[in-house]
Design a protein around this nucleic acid. Structure first.
Length: 299
DNA sequence: AGTTGTGTTGAAGA
DNA sequence: ATCTTCAACACAAC
């Protein structure tokens, strides 16, 4: 599932590979992925736009576009927002498009099954394409003026970036300790803190030795400090390893990330705890699975 | 062969 | 306000 490290991997790839390219057209077979504007308007809006810069906000990919000045029409700054949700991921390559059917040409990794659920394509002016593979079609794509997109509640309401240089322990303590909910749910809440999903919340709490059911406002300063340190350490490690590919995530070349191989508890239920060998447990919290060690992680 | 698990987000209901 | 459930969708595993 694309969380902060996976989205960061994609954003870094895009900045390396498609800056300065012009979008010459789009193709899709799942119109519901386009939000806010009608597919036809979306197509007209984005056609001819040049990719200037790619940023990340939480799990959102923000692609800054510039439409060129033509005749008397002033250039227009656009923002393209892509959220990969659960099974979506962006790929750069070439496909053969024939009506409803789409066939991967290159690179070879696009033939892997997880990469072969293409439902949306941005065609670039150098012949390459930016494709969205998404088995469950939950991903969303929307475009508008920079001001318009930045004013959307899903961006406006999002919490601070855990890896931002100016994000410190004082701020972390302040936003977490006012929450009465279980710490697992608080870490997952994008309006509290940005970018953390089920994989990294499980691993962060194991690393910090905190039980996922512990109410956030009952955490001591020492416990909060441990969560803060674990959060930075694990997110940084996962970014360096280019994310987790236990499920569908792949980078823009279609390649798997490395964090899944060294994960601590996520999807390790019944396997031995890496600290004490006790079997890892799985419980439900508000419809989500939490994995943890009932000996190492204290309530 | 039908049921369950997967997990992001927004909306709807309690 | 705050909580839970469901829906979007498709597939793997049981």
């Amino acid at each position: 599932m694309p969380e902060l490290p996976e989205v960061q991997t994609v954003v870094s790839d895009l900045n390396k590979k498609i800056i300065g390219k012009k979008i010459t057209g789009i193709w899709f077979d799942a119109p519901k992925i386009i939000k806010k504007s009608a597919p036809k308007n979306f197509s007209a809006l984005i056609k001819g736009a040049v990719i200037k810069e790619v940023k990340r906000r939480g799990k959102n990919i923000l692609i800054y576009l510039q439409k060129s000045q033509r005749l008397n029409v002033k250039g227009q700054k656009l923002l393209l927002l892509i959220h990969q949700k659960m099974t979506g991921h962006l790929l750069i390559g070439k496909w053969k498009i024939e009506n409803k059917k789409i066939r991967p040409l290159k690179p070879a990794a696009l033939k892997e099954k997880v990469n072969d659920y293409i439902h949306f394509i941005f065609k670039l002016d150098d012949g390459r394409m930016l494709g969205l593979s998404d088995l469950r079609k939950f991903a969303k794509v929307l475009c508008g003026s920079v001001e318009e997109i930045k004013a959307l509640p899903e961006l406006l309401k999002i919490g601070p970036e855990p890896l931002a240089a100016d994000f410190n322990f004082g701020q972390f303590q302040k936003i977490i300790s006012k929450e009465k909910r279980k710490i697992k749910q608080v870490l997952l809440d994008q309006e509290v803190i940005a970018g953390i999903g089920n994989i990294y919340s499980d691993d962060i709490l194991w690393q910090a030795r905190i039980h996922p059911f512990k109410p956030a406002d009952k955490l001591s300063g020492y416990e909060l400090k441990n969560i803060y340190k674990a959060m930075k350490m694990i997110l940084n490690k996962a970014v360096n390893l280019r994310g987790t590919s236990i499920s569908d995530f792949r980078d823009t070349a279609g390649k798997a990330g490395g964090y899944g191989n060294i994960r601590l508890v996520y999807r390790r239920e019944n396997e031995p705890c890496k600290r004490c060998q006790a079997p890892i447990k799985r419980v439900k919290i508000g419809g989500r699975s939490a994995r943890f060690c009932s000996f190492c992680q204290k309530l």
